[in-house]
Amino acid sequence: MPGNFGRPQALTSNPFHYCPGCSHGIVHRLVAEVIDELGIGGRTVGVASVGCSVFSYNYFNVDMVQASHGRAPAVATGLKRSPAAPVVFTYQGDGDLAAIGTGETIHAAARGENITVIFINNANFGMTGGQMAPTTLPGQVTTTTPEGRNTAESGYPLRVCEMLSTVEGVAFLTRVTVHKPAMVLKARAAVKKAFQVQLAGGGFSLVEVLATCPTNWGQTPVDALRWLEENMIPAYPLGEFRSWEAS
């Protein structure tokens, strides 16, 4: 358990470009810590999506592939099915995974593709300036829902874990947050299990991480944590939607 703290080997020395207080930085560290702990850095390939985390190929100190918007699970499939068959993870935001990439997400899950998806849900398109995403909450103000998301016009949030829990190919599916130290530890355990599922050839694993976006939510980093607790968690219940035990 975290006695000492330092920069994981699976992170490069590049400083993050993320906004102050953004959860991406925490999740990057967790993924890197897990890669170090499992000793798989040398045979892991990460797939960066398009969004705030598009630059993650500058941060994860492993072979990286930058995928077009929404297609990371398909790129990951190609990587995993190649003769090299590395350990493969994708790192995607909610715009990438739950909007344009919904098809790729569902079908990679349906195929039981033996990859690990790290899915950051911060209820908006961050990189492009805070637009509504499929995960934006009813009434939530974004740059494309200036009066607050009106479900009569733009519908309801997509609950990805609940949706994917109906798909047989999924081996491990959980939703966590990183808005408190204890939750960060739980999120780290979830990421570790997801990679362990893949290492055991168990099939498709996905960890959804509720995350803050102080800049586009228009809040201080600390207030954003509170907003997440009071609004995101009720809308996106935490917990495992498909559990997995090493057989």
Partner: peptide
């Protein structure tokens, strides 16, 4: 051989497998 869910997915699977050198 893998049948993809769309041509969008197919060309991106090609991208991934090509990145791995095949």
């Amino acid at each position: 051989f893998l049948q993809a869910e769309s041509e969008l997915a197919a060309i991106n699977m090609v991208y991934g497998a090509a990145a791995a050198g095949g």
